[in-house]
Measured scan of single mutants.
Amino acid sequence: QWKVGDKCSAIWSEDGCIYPATIASIDFKRETCVVVYTGYGNREEQNLSDLLSPICE
C-alpha cells in the first residue's frame, strides 16, 4: 500500500512518458493521490492504481 512520501513512478499526462515522482498526498476515498515529479516540481493527480514502482536511476 502506498503512503505519503513514497517514491514511485508515474505517467505524466502531457506526454505519456514515465517519470520518477514522490507521493505528496493521498485521498483513500477516491483512490487518488497527488504526485510531485522529481526534478521538475510539477504536481499532478493520479489514480493510486496507476502508480508504478520507482525507477532505478
Rank of each mutant, 00 (worst) to 15 (best):
Q1S: 12
Q1R: 14
W2N: 15
W2P: 15
W2G: 15
W2H: 14
W2Q: 14
K3Q: 14
K3S: 08
K3T: 09
K3G: 14
V4A: 01
V4D: 14
G5Y: 04
G5D: 09
G5T: 03
G5L: 02
G5M: 02
G5P: 02
D6F: 05
D6Q: 00
D6M: 09
D6G: 00
D6N: 00
K7Y: 12
K7R: 11
K7C: 13
C8D: 00
S9A: 13
S9K: 07
S9Q: 13
S9N: 09
A10V: 13
A10D: 05
I11S: 01
I11H: 01
I11L: 05
W12N: 10
S13L: 08
S13G: 09
S13K: 13
S13I: 08
S13T: 08
S13E: 05
E14I: 15
E14Y: 15
E14V: 15
E14Q: 13
E14K: 15
E14A: 12
E14M: 14
D15N: 10
D15H: 04
D15K: 07
D15Q: 07
D15V: 04
G16N: 06
G16I: 09
G16H: 02
G16E: 02
G16W: 09
C17H: 15
C17L: 15
C17M: 14
C17I: 02
I18F: 10
I18H: 02
Y19Q: 02
Y19W: 05
Y19M: 06
P20K: 03
P20A: 12
P20F: 12
P20T: 08
P20H: 10
P20V: 10
P20E: 11
A21N: 01
A21V: 08
A21R: 06
A21M: 04
T22D: 01
T22Y: 10
T22R: 08
T22M: 07
T22C: 05
T22K: 04
I23G: 05
I23W: 00
I23T: 03
A24F: 14
A24H: 13
A24C: 06
A24I: 15
S25A: 08
S25W: 09
S25D: 08
S25N: 04
I26E: 04
I26Q: 01
I26F: 01
I26T: 02
I26V: 04
D27T: 00
D27I: 05
D27E: 01
D27F: 06
F28T: 12
F28H: 14
K29F: 12
K29E: 14
K29L: 13
R30K: 13
R30F: 11
R30N: 13
E31C: 07
E31I: 09
E31W: 11
T32N: 03
T32E: 05
T32A: 02
T32C: 02
C33M: 02
C33E: 00
C33V: 12
C33R: 00
C33Y: 05
V34R: 01
V34L: 03
V34G: 01
V34P: 02
V34E: 10
V34Q: 01
V34Y: 03
V35S: 02
V35D: 05
V35C: 08
V36P: 02
V36L: 07
V36Y: 05
V36I: 14
V36S: 01
Y37K: 01
Y37E: 05
Y37L: 07
T38M: 11
T38Q: 05
T38D: 15
G39C: 12
G39R: 08
G39T: 08
G39K: 08
Y40L: 15
Y40Q: 08
Y40P: 07
Y40A: 07
G41W: 09
G41M: 10
G41I: 04
N42S: 12
N42E: 06
N42Q: 10
R43M: 14
R43L: 11
E44P: 07
E45T: 13
E45M: 09
E45Y: 02
E45V: 12
E45A: 06
Q46K: 15
Q46I: 10
Q46G: 07
Q46A: 04
N47H: 12
N47V: 04
N47P: 07
N47M: 08
N47C: 10
N47F: 13
L48C: 15
L48V: 06
S49F: 08
S49P: 05
S49K: 14
D50Y: 07
D50P: 03
D50F: 08
L51A: 06
L51F: 02
L51C: 05
L51V: 01
L51R: 02
L52Q: 01
L52F: 10
L52P: 03
S53T: 04
S53Y: 11
S53W: 13
S53N: 09
S53Q: 14
P54H: 08
P54S: 06
P54E: 09
I55Y: 12
I55K: 04
I55H: 07
I55R: 10
I55M: 14
C56R: 12
C56D: 15
C56P: 15
C56H: 14
C56A: 14
E57C: 13
E57K: 07
